[in-house]
Design a binder for these strands. Structure first.
Lengths: 354, 354
DNA sequence: TTGTACGCGTTATCAT
DNA sequence: ATGATAACGCGTACAA
């Protein structure tokens, strides 16, 4: 709107060359304190900010990063993103967010774009790096075309993927600990005397779902117990999915219900508890429930939810850190050590309700 | 990483001038079909995309917009943002998100930056327009310095604020209908026989809170009923706030509790219901509750929540539309007509639970 | 229809 | 410590 003021203007007003102004802009030491002082004053006075365009022509950097995730409406992604944005900004990077809405939750507005299309758009935005969480990359069967597309992206700009390493994909990966949370939940239930434990939620064919269910099975075996197949019901990650999964579990197991159930996240647990109530079952008396991924205000549910805090925010910071160091040319990969934390409340039955 | 290919390269490979390539890039009609065809092929073959930097030097556009809101973790903002991002992208604009975290919810990571600081950062990012939702701008008492800061921003780039017009602020405003939802809720409660209605949640000193409470009072008067002051408890917008507000309301009104309560949003309602249960009161039998802003999976609460869908997503689209037309030089302001929709479920008591 | 040449605002190189 | 100037990749006025 108002005519842009340029470095040349500042140089003129300060009675120095553009080079000198550029030097103070970039904190070069070789400027006399007096001049620097004066120039800074003028810069401030005229409210001058350098053009990112002209800068970009030289160094090819936007100081923007791109974040690609399915749906910011999902609290899991939101808490992750919040930290990403914040930490990135404290490193002078702004964050462009792309919701690929890979999930079917918001069909109304589902994007006609494939994730590979997004890669192209992101590339055109000339971001300095890309962070990917969820979506296609989380599938067990990934098309070679997709791998190629993401590799192509990575050829142009550093790409960090949150999830476990994929064969043939050259990006950087931030590993999530998918077993720990499950394990502590199983142990907790065992300690409470449960041996008949089920698992609900999570989309089939998604790596993190499979990883968790495998962890669940494996941990159960540790106790010499093989979980019943009908006590494991996958569906998806939202409340309606939890409801439906629980309903199915109830329907399919008339005479051998589990006494405790692990839900893949808080929303699924919410739906599951609702399904129990609709079936005139009460939680935790009839079936205890615990969730292995905290978000939402599950402390205010009825019953209050026992859950595991996986510290997703922390993950976000690590991912950005990894990305920024990649942008700066470092290739050493950061490993994320986070210890999921059990949050014991009512739904597991270990605290008696008043 | 890989050496960037430029328009000059494309021109050489196609055996034409850069001008001609530029013409096909910008869909200029004056290029012979044959040449255009050939050039396009080469562009595609080499996977060429024009440099936004060089382009920006000419037209001063990034095709990025900035969105500033307190906290994307809040479902109210998330659903709004989702639509913004999506609609913006379908108009070729990418969205940079800034969480100013004005609320105290995430103290752990609270930003040391003021919103005015953010204005500066946003400006440096050279976005084509800015969307502001929540934060300082929603306060009743806004410091002149803040108004000046936002005006200064608007002097440089179009700024659209979601909220009602502020004296002295030159930005564009998208008005929210704050009465409609409340009104239909009061009417609904009246129809169910309630005359003793309370209101909880919302931060004092925030315009939307005041607007809603005023609407509440006014509507009650329509029925010849002045609500008790002790039946109106403000706090904030999250579940813990609903809990605390309800607790206070219960404590302060030992012998004259309301029979129905309107919560400012679903999270507050969740907290409130929890507080009732902790006080051995049941909802809706003892006190009916309804929320005037739907989000979350309130359909899965116990009891299922009666609420109002304010169509926030729609608001997001309108805001972007307004912003884009402002970017394109139009000044006519778009008015948003949206009819909040009552979603009747269990917590209001009009549906008997099984 | 096509091409030449300049300018956009900044940083880097090389002088001084 | 400071300054002159080339270069970055693109759009566009102007010329042909």
């Amino acid at each position: 709107m108002s005519k842009k003021i340029t470095i040349t203007d500042i140089a003129k007003k300060s009675g120095v060359s553009v080079t000198t102004v550029s030097r103070v802009l970039n904190n070069s030491p070789s400027v006399s304190p007096a001049k620097r002082e004066r120039i800074l004053r003028i810069i401030d006075e005229y409210n001058y900010t350098p053009s990112i365009f002209a800068r970009g022509m030289i160094n090819h950097k936007t100081k923007n990063i791109g974040v690609m995730l399915p749906d910011i409406t999902n609290p899991y992604f939101a808490s992750f993103f919040l930290q990403v944005e914040h930490f990135a900004l404290s490193n002078m990077y702004a964050t462009i967010l792309f919701n690929t809405m890979y999930t079917k939750n918001h069909q109304k507005y589902e994007t006609p774009l494939s994730e590979a299309d997004y890669f192209k758009i992101i590339l055109e935005k000339q971001v300095d790096g890309v962070l990917i969480l969820g979506g296609q990359i989380d599938k067990e069967e990934i098309s070679p075309a997709f791998i190629e597309a993401i590799n192509e992206l990575h050829r142009n700009v550093p790409v960090v993927v949150v999830g476990s390493k994929i064969e043939g994909c050259n990006c950087l990966f931030i590993e999530r600990n998918s077993k720990q949370g499950i394990t502590s939940l199983v142990h907790h239930f065992k300690a409470l005397g449960h041996s008949n434990i089920g698992f609900i939620g999570g989309e089939p064919g998604i790596r993190i779902t499979t990883a968790r269910i495998n962890a669940f099975r494996q941990c159960m075996r540790t106790f010499g117990k093989e979980p019943l197949e009908s006590h494991i019901v996958m569906s998806d990650y939202y409340a309606p999915d939890g409801y439906q999964a629980m309903k199915q579990l109830l329907d399919d197991n008339n005479n051998q219900l589990p006494t405790a159930i692990i839900a893949i996240n808080d929303m699924v647990a919410l739906g599951a508890i609702r399904a129990m109530k609709d079936a005139n079952l009460s939680c935790p008396e009839d079936i205890a429930i615990a969730s292995c991924d905290q978000f939402l205000h599950s402390d205010y549910f009825t019953p209050r939810l026992t859950t595991v805090d996986q510290h997703n925010e922390y993950l976000g910071r690590m991912a950005v850190m990894q990305l920024i160091s990649a942008i700066n040319g470092s290739i050493e990969s950061i490993s994320v050590e986070h210890m999921p934390q059990l949050v014991i409340r009512e739904s597991c039955g270990s605290i008696t309700r008043s």
